[in-house]
């Protein structure tokens, strides 16, 4: 048996036939895009400055990291590890904003969902904040915080918080009252009701909010890094483009999508499987 069939069998075992088919169909547009890209390299329809060859984009990884003394130095954030530093600083801000913004958004969302007075205060401003695009705050944030990590972090936090707040609030409101009453008549306290009813009951909505927060927040972060940042992948793309180093721009864009996809596949999708799918709270096509 060849290595390739071995591989395809192992994939089949993991995914099942239907899923494998879907996976392969999904790859086709990417393959076409890469094919066109390669053809462009051969026929030079576009200048390499406009669309650089794939090999150069690949090479960019190494020249951007060429002065980096080694893996540990890269993890450490050594000054000369350009590419890894920019990746780490974007990811670091995503993590920081998530760790702060998600619990805060969920917390206020639960309070507002349970209590009419609190939601009377917070709902209008929530609607307002969510209608203003996250990136619209960038110029103001630069005035407030200057160019640097504070601005980028603020932009992402602001985007994440309101989306989670709003979605959690809606989710909590949709929890059937009888479920709460059930727990109360078993002797549960308010805190028990929050932890055991409102939070899991709002989960479908919270996960939707998380998806939106990741999407909008990550985009807002890249934009903020371009305009108001001094590090990160957005910053790298912006600087490289102004120096006509298109390979680095392409590399940056590809890395951004890969990181984004990875967070979805490895964090949000498993979370969804582990919670709302297991509980039968999502409609599944069969």
């Amino acid at each position: 048996m060849t290595a390739l069939t071995d591989f395809s069998i192992s994939i089949q075992r993991r995914f099942g036939r239907q899923r494998l088919r879907k996976f392969i169909l999904g790859l086709i547009p990417f393959a076409l895009l890469i094919g066109l890209w390669e053809l462009n390299t051969a026929f030079v329809w576009f200048d390499p400055v406009e669309i650089p060859p794939i090999a150069d984009v690949w090479e960019a990884i190494f020249w951007l990291q060429s002065d980096c003394p080694g893996f540990m130095a890269a993890v450490d954030g050594h000054n000369s590890c350009q590419l890894s530093n920019n990746i780490l600083s974007s990811i670091g801000r995503v993590i920081l904003a998530t760790v702060v913004g998600v619990p805060l958004g969920i917390g206020f969302g639960i309070l507002a969902g349970m209590n009419r007075t609190i939601s009377a205060y917070l709902e209008p401003i929530g609607v307002f904040m969510n209608s203003v695009s996250g990136i619209a705050w960038i110029p103001l944030a630069v005035v407030w915080f200057g160019v640097g990590w504070e601005t980028t972090l603020f932009i992402m936090l602001n985007t994440i918080f309101w989306l989670l707040f709003f979605n959690t609030m809606m989710g909590v409101r949709a929890v059937p009252k009888v479920l709460v009453q059930g727990v109360q008549t078993l002797g549960g306290s308010h805190l028990d009701a929050i932890r055991q009813v409102y939070l899991p009951g709002a989960m479908p909505s919270i996960i939707t909010g998380g998806r939106m927060a990741m999407g909008f927040g990550w985009r807002a972060l890249i934009a903020a890094e371009m305009i108001g940042g001094d590090s990160g992948l957005g910053f790298m793309i912006f600087v490289s483009a102004s120096e006509f180093k298109t390979e680095e721009v392409f590399l940056g864009v590809i890395l951004i999508s890969i990181i984004f996809l990875a967070t979805d596949r490895w964090i949000l999708v498993p979370l969804e499987k582990w919670t709302i799918e297991r509980w039968g709270l999502v409609w599944k096509p069969t």
Binding site: P176, V178, Q181, G182, T185, Q196, V197, P200, W279
Partner: peptide
């Protein structure tokens, strides 16, 4: 006072 409700009040999770 335990209550059995008409609708399904058991927790789906």
């Amino acid at each position: 006072r335990g209550v059995v409700f008409q609708e399904h009040a058991i927790l789906p999770w």
